[in-house]
Amino acid sequence: MTDTLNLLIGIAAGLNLLALASSRLPSMIRAAALQGLVLGVLPLLLEDDWSVLLVAMAAGTALAKGFVIPSLLRRAMHAASIDREVEPLIGFVPSLLLGALATILAMLLSRSLPLLPEHSRTLLLPGALATAICGALLIMARTKAISQVCGYLVLENGAYLFGLLLLRSTPLLVEAGILLDLTVGIFVIGIVVDRIQREFDSLDTRNLTELHE
């Protein structure tokens, strides 16, 4: 059980790096979607007795993060008919190395943090930290609005992983609320993307740093 869990978290950490290395928007969206899908099934591995709520939550998370949100992003991408190339502020090789460094540092850091005995053998905490840092890196180091949304998704996946540590003590309804917020957020960002596109004819968020009349 723990081995499968660690394997899935390891795959999620690999998908962080895939998102950092992808030079095209569709592959970045795919990496974020796959990560959401992989992390969606984790609650089923952590809990032994499957309640209806738990299964519904896992299915809902996997469905929302793996299919609904990515398809919204793809639609926004097609609607805005933008160039598919990702424009990095930090190059692909440096961002890959930074992501790997973050993953290793997360491993080292989580060794010294006090954890519950049932979590000390899992990679939940390092995975959460690494995913959150990689998501933040994606938001900072990419210029296009859609790639920043992907970064936000990865960041949220990190927060979700962190939340799994508290699975026993927080009701899954909280996570449902977060998921709802996320979906609404993606909707809003979709509208914003459309607005940016109409105003500037590109999705480069660097255009938004200056104030105009």
Partner: peptide, 10 residues
């Protein structure tokens, strides 16, 4: 090649 390095690093 960086990907190969990272695979081996992991």
């Amino acid at each position: 090649l960086t990907t190969a390095f990272l695979l081996n690093l992991f």
